[in-house]
Computed example of a mutant assay.
Amino acid sequence: MPLGTLDGTPPSFFRQGPSALSKLVFFSALALFLMVADVRFEIAKPLRVALATALYPVQWLVLRPVLWAQNSGKYLDALQSSQASEEATRLRLDVQSQRANQVESLILENSRLRKLLSLRERVTTPSQAAQVLYDAADPYTRKVIIDRGLTEGVLAGSPVIDETGVLGQVTRVYPLVSEVTLVTDRDQAIPVLNTRTGARGVAFGDSALRSSGLELRFMAANADVQPGDLLTTSGVDGVYPPGLPVARVAKVERRVDTAFARITCTPLALVSGVGHVMVLKPVTAQIAPRPAAEPPPGPIKKGGKK
């Protein structure tokens, strides 16, 4: 049978309704109508609200893992940043604390140096400044080491003072450093003068190993000495210039079983913790040497000639 004689129309039970083109045109027009109507009259707004309300729980559940991951990352970043900031702040605080301590020590040192310079202006004896390096290693003595020696012209026996009074005396001199025995050393003695009464005496270092005081020895039990009296150098020893403050009387004990009073004094100098001192030239070194004696005249000969 020839193919052209066949009927191409489908049977009645396979009917598809409108054609595809008709459907396309119809739904396109409907979509265009709905869009225009939604823009003009907002007819789809209740539907969108209903759909958004219905889908919100699903969106909330879906977004939870994403938000948790983001918040975890932000928390870790903030934690690391906070730790780094805390460490940097702690380091700055340590630096500031060190600077504050240095400022306090510099203020104290500056104040002592100003007092030492003002004392130097009042003292007419030749002097030179020195710095205390360290305390002597001998626990049975009271000595310090300063950074001036023979190269700077320091002499054995030179008086050493600080900004408040007599500190001690140079006992050993080396090329670059010198050893200073403090007035509180038990082997040290210094002639003093009571500025209130004018009485002279000798102050010795306290014999107690751990004491930092002085004793005014060989003073009669009825001597006019009272607590608070100021003791200065008398200048009779040829070492210390007169008028330098040495100590202040702290306690006077008068006993009937001895002819001498026990007088305890407190040194005015900073015997512990001194940093800068002034080395004076001994008084005897400032005295001009005695002129040489002239030779005796020879015998006179007869005729008026020697």
Rank of each mutant, 00 (worst) to 15 (best):
Phe41Thr: 06
Gln286Glu: 15
Leu270Gly: 07
Glu109Leu: 10
Arg90Ser: 14
Pro46Ala: 01
Pro46Tyr: 00
Phe41Pro: 05
Thr151Asp: 14
Gln96Ser: 12
Met278Cys: 10
Glu179Gln: 12
Val225Leu: 04
Leu67Cys: 01
Met35Arg: 06
Pro267Tyr: 01
Thr181Ile: 13
Asp162Ala: 08
Glu87Asp: 12
Gly304Lys: 08
Gly168Arg: 03
Glu294Cys: 02
Ala100Lys: 09
Ala261Trp: 01
Leu133Glu: 08
Leu34Lys: 11
Phe26Glu: 01
Thr124Pro: 03
Val183Phe: 01
Arg262Ala: 10
Ile161Asn: 06
Thr195Gln: 08
Asp229Lys: 04
Leu119Tyr: 03
Ser111Ala: 15
Asp185Cys: 00
Ala269Tyr: 02
Val236Gly: 03
Arg122Thr: 12
Tyr240Met: 14
Thr181Trp: 03
Val123Gly: 02
Asp147His: 05
Val192Phe: 05
Val236Arg: 13
Gly228Asn: 07
Pro241Asn: 10
Ser158Asp: 07
Val166Asp: 04
Leu32Gly: 14
Asp94Cys: 11
Ser111Asp: 08
Leu30Ile: 15
Val283Glu: 15
Lys251Pro: 00
Phe14Ala: 15
Lys305Ser: 09
Arg99Tyr: 09
Ala20Asn: 02
Ala84Asp: 15
Thr125Leu: 07
Gln226Ser: 08
Pro242Asp: 04
Ser127Arg: 01
Gln188Thr: 09
Ser82Thr: 11
Asp135Met: 14
Val192Gln: 03
Val236Cys: 12
Val36Thr: 12
Pro65His: 05
Ala259Gln: 11
Val39Lys: 13
Ala54Ser: 02
Leu176Phe: 12
Glu163His: 11
Pro267Met: 04
Glu109Gln: 12
Met219Ser: 01
Leu244Tyr: 07
Ala292Thr: 12
Ala203Phe: 02
Pro57Met: 01
Cys265Gly: 05
Gln70Lys: 05
Pro11Ile: 13
Lys143Met: 13
Ser118Asp: 11
Ala293Pro: 04
Ile107Phe: 13
Ala100Cys: 07
Val236Ser: 14
Gln188Asp: 02
Ser111Leu: 11
Leu216Trp: 09
Ile287Cys: 05
Tyr140Lys: 06
Leu150Asn: 10
Asp138Cys: 08
Asn222Glu: 08
Arg217Asp: 03
